[in-house]
Design a protein around this nucleic acid. Sequence first.
DNA 1: CTGTTAGCGCTTTCAG
DNA 2: CTGAAAGCGCTAACAG
Lengths: 332, 332
Amino acid sequence: MKKITMKEIAKLANVSQPTVSRVINGNKGVNEEAAKRVLDAIQKVGYVPNKAAQTLKQSNSKIIGVCVSEIYNPYFVELIDTLELEARKKDYNIIFHNSKHNPITEWENIQNFIARQVDGIIIVPTSDYNIQKIKDLRTPAISITQNKKHIDSVGLDHRKGGELAAASFIHSGHNSFAYIGTTPEDEKLIGFKSCLYENGFSFDMKNYIHVEESSTNNYLMRRDLEKYFNRVGQPDFTCVFATNDIVALEFMKLAQEKSLSIPKDIAVIGFDDTFLAKITGLSSVHQPVEKMVKTTFSILMNRIEDGTSSELVDIKLEPTLITRQSSNIKRT
Amino acid sequence: MKKITMKEIAKLANVSQPTVSRVINGNKGVNEEAAKRVLDAIQKVGYVPNKAAQTLKQSNSKIIGVCVSEIYNPYFVELIDTLELEARKKDYNIIFHNSKHNPITEWENIQNFIARQVDGIIIVPTSDYNIQKIKDLRTPAISITQNKKHIDSVGLDHRKGGELAAASFIHSGHNSFAYIGTTPEDEKLIGFKSCLYENGFSFDMKNYIHVEESSTNNYLMRRDLEKYFNRVGQPDFTCVFATNDIVALEFMKLAQEKSLSIPKDIAVIGFDDTFLAKITGLSSVHQPVEKMVKTTFSILMNRIEDGTSSELVDIKLEPTLITRQSSNIKRT
DNA sequence: CTGTTAGCGCTTTCAG
DNA sequence: CTGAAAGCGCTAACAG
């Protein structure tokens, strides 16, 4: 049951092994007859060239390492799926890893990428923890979704996302606002507040609802929200902007259990515009995933092919707001 | 910026290159002093062995190819995540592909696996289309989730799943039943009906609601459901069993838009028990994903290590029903 | 205990 | 146009 190699094909086609290589790689100057014999033989035995040997020889693996920080948020699923599609178009494969918000795991993943001789790395960083080490790698790496200093990145203007949500709430006549997120330093919140201020509204930090980062399951977030409800009883805000669709949905569910009506009592806007938002009617800030992926790839491909260390790329894409039932109501 | 090899390490540590190899592979008999020098050198320059070379030499890649039929159902995300975790434990990497319910894509994916010299293949088949070809591969392959003839498989007792749903509805006092799925031949439906019959109930095929397989987006399913509602106006059943959580949720949303209350007017049970069910309170038939993955791996590992073609393995795991709000009501 | 040697399957000169 | 030969980085005999 041993694997078939070029040598066998060569024998079958009555040519030398390098000639088989030439045929496979579409090299011109090969006798047509011979080429046909080779192709036939390949077809017949179902030969597929050994990528490990190619990698070794050409010192490029045609593999891109992708490491995301989590995967239970469908946004990342969409990202990965789009990434894979784009990679395939460019004849690359993807080795995919999940760091689960753990910098140690993240670094192990990257070590593995190096061992696998990946040609490039695309990463959704857990934090700044490994950025320096990533920068010093001999392999080009780029951060996607998040903008980082020191390495190339293609991110999103999260601040703008926050502004869009705020503007929409203001436009709908709200005047008491809340935010659900994992850190008060989030650009989304900063944008949200700055838009509020610019329009003469205020943001009360007691309406900053804190949830823990959800790595594997969403129970932590849920518990945080429950705790919040238990503490405040009835919320005194009429609209809430959430850091992602999942928390937004959890919030909606909990609110409904408390007999609050969405959007009548409280309007909700989520983030990422995942398919969850689509099937549940949740308004959400949309990220241009495909554009993000294409941009990321084209930058990475340049780095791989060029290698000269030109200036760092730092791109911020524009989000848009998709309004659905959860915030689609005017207050009077 | 060229890659570091064992040769450089050897030079740095003042030993021969094979000695470096010995140290790395934890081979006994190496002078402690020398070993330490080697380790130091490795540490210092951050050397990582080249897997392509190892693969070429040992003719095993330590890669498992995983090809699923879709990814927008979170059930598959959980599957992939669990698969990756298990692979990592066994020092394997995963190359992941999505066939998007397309047999042609599926076969391309498998060809790529072969080119990459994967040691084994785990597949959620799109259909029976490629099974024969997969069987004839020189690489061990196993079907997960679905039971297939001709190749090893670790699936789920879908029929039992249907029975659980039916039994639960009966127990709650329902007597008019519906099913949403992609084919009337689905084992889930067969089990659902057989349990109904055994308990003296009937299943009216006009309550078989057909939806198209959703490959990338869920709009098709949604449209099918809308069409259904438009056709029948008010449904005459009091409970519905759906082939997966996503359709179940779509149905719930649509029903609520029609002012039907869940579970009061219609009780709903989904399938897969994804996190969607958890965050929305949907009852669902649970699959033992971790057990499925572990079983699959252990069978595959055996095939890889052993190679002797012993008898085909065909395992069906038992589902359980998780009851939540969407079906948690007794009719009187 | 350790260095020398060979060879995994492929691509790439280099002759012819 | 095509065969012979070398070598990518590593592991596995085989001597010493």
